[in-house]
Design a protein around this nucleic acid. Sequence first.
DNA 1: CACCCCACCTGCGTGC
DNA 2: TGCACGCAGGTGGGGT
Length: 272
Amino acid sequence: MPELPEVEVIRRGLATKLVGERIVAVSQGDKRLRRQAELPELESLAGCAITRLARRGKYLLLRLDRGQTVLIHLGMTGRLFFQTDHCPPLPHVHFVFHCQSGHKLLYQDVRRFGQVLLYPAGVTPPALAQVGLEPFSRRLTPEWLAARTAGRHRPIKNLLLDGRLVAGIGNIYAAETLFAAGMHPQTPVGQVSLKGWGKVLQSLRRILRRAIRAGGTTIATFADCEGQSGLFAVQLRVYGRAGEPCPICGTPIARLVMAGRSTFFCPACQSG
DNA sequence: CACCCCACCTGCGTGC
DNA sequence: TGCACGCAGGTGGGGT
């Protein structure tokens, strides 16, 4: 589900309701996520107030007034939302954060690829050390990308998916970025010119901004913390559209598997 | 170091 | 109707 725009939409939605809110209890479902904090740790959050919601790549961070950090990654199917009153018990709910105001924040995750971890004051979550530059960082420039990829041969699409270099890009936005930049997904990174990197960066930033503004992309399950679907799916130009005509030239959109992931592109527009 | 592959899960759509 | 299969927005550990 969630790439940078979806996580950012969640972050903004949660911030309006959670900043200043105090946690009174945390409860846990029976099945475990791939990585998760133990319940006694999370129960130690009782009495803490949430001071800030932050995002690094696809990680969401809840900062608490005693310095702790709750690190949440939504994996493929993770969702965060407030439980509405009188709704029936939901399946696949793994954590419930009970707030002083009566709000209940639920973490639901069908496939359980997500993570909910707790770090004490002063400890930086190790996973964050691996996270690359934010797409909107001023340090991310065509020159930086060219320097980091000089002489390397991996396809640009695989590079965009590598969050250790640039954070937050997933399969949807990698495809859309390369389409907008007119670049073939298999282009070896070492062959991309400075001008090419400029185009990629400009396309990436424009698409991410538009996706955030549209509330993210809902393919099947994504929803913001109020349960609203994102509207960017209708603006997708190639992702999931194999066989459909390219919106620019009419050539059928092609599908290719790269690094085990479906890759959608226009063979005519993205020849360079 | 650079890069690829697969495991980790459940659910849904398709085709036989 | 049922079953087998392929596919899905994520990482991360292990192999070449």
